[in-house]
Amino acid sequence: MQKVNNKWIKLGVEILLLAALFTLVQYLITAGLLKQYYQISLASMCINVILAVSLSLINGFTGQLSLGHAGFMAVGAYIAAIMTNMLDLPFIIGILAACLGAGLAGFIIGVPTLRLKGDYLAIATLAFGEIIRVVLQNIDYVNGPAGIMGISKLSTWPWLYGGAIITIVVIVNLVNSSYGRAIISIREDEIASELMGINTTKYKVLAFVVGAAFAGLAGALYAHYFYIIKPETFNFLKSFDILVMVVLGGLGSTTGAIIAAVFVTALTAALQSFPAIRMVLYALILIIMMIYRPQGLMGNKELSMKTFGRIWGGRN
């Protein structure tokens, strides 16, 4: 009984903290106390959290190195922009269509490529991501390389924050279930997993599709925050950006991915005027992390209130 009570108390506190953060930022924005620079940073943080958490499902939990995440983001961004800007549909329809479209793209790409292993898979997903970009460049309906301009700014704080929270909740709940254990077992030993009765192909595709769908969500939010989308925005360097966050946070840690996404976004914002230095730093982070701490900041552990309790309480 005690255990059950604790669970609900924990959930209550979590919801309260999240709501407090939401209200605080919302108040600062409406009261005009938050500078443009910080508003943009917060929006980018939400979008990057969605991207990092969704990629961490594929790279971290399933152990399938995907380098094409920006491609799914592009699919979502374009679909959402077409829906709202060209077809005058409501934002929510645009978002749902973006998730569905990106998820479908994930399915189409995932089914054939997920048979491949390790570095072959990485290269194939990179190639598919680039193909999405090149195809977008060649579609006149979306203005080819020039992209879509003048997208209405519909991504307000509630949408951005809500999107990030929904992504985290869905992926955390998925990972902490029998389905999640099946997914993680693929990372640990694919052959053993298959022989223990797990349809590894199905679960790899599932993780890939869910990850892609949320990348689509991130794309939709991005398009409606930054007004402009161009195919070039979603090249493989963008995929590497997301990879940096996942690797830095720890392959197999959602909280790690969130912390890293926030940190990397802040770093990016701070180094806005020095893009070359920013990329050199990213590069060094990747190399040094892999050599000295390949498990990332968090390894495959999660940061929880229990961890805080331990730190504060001084108990081991």
Partner: peptide, 27 residues
């Protein structure tokens, strides 16, 4: 074995083919 997982999780994974709830139920 699934080396980085706990003993209990290793065993639970093997019960997955009889999982008593659906994906949506988990989410």
């Amino acid at each position: 074995l699934f080396n980085d997982l706990s003993v209990l999780d290793n065993v639970k994974i093997a019960t997955h083919k009889n999982v008593p709830y659906g994906l949506m139920s988990a989410i």
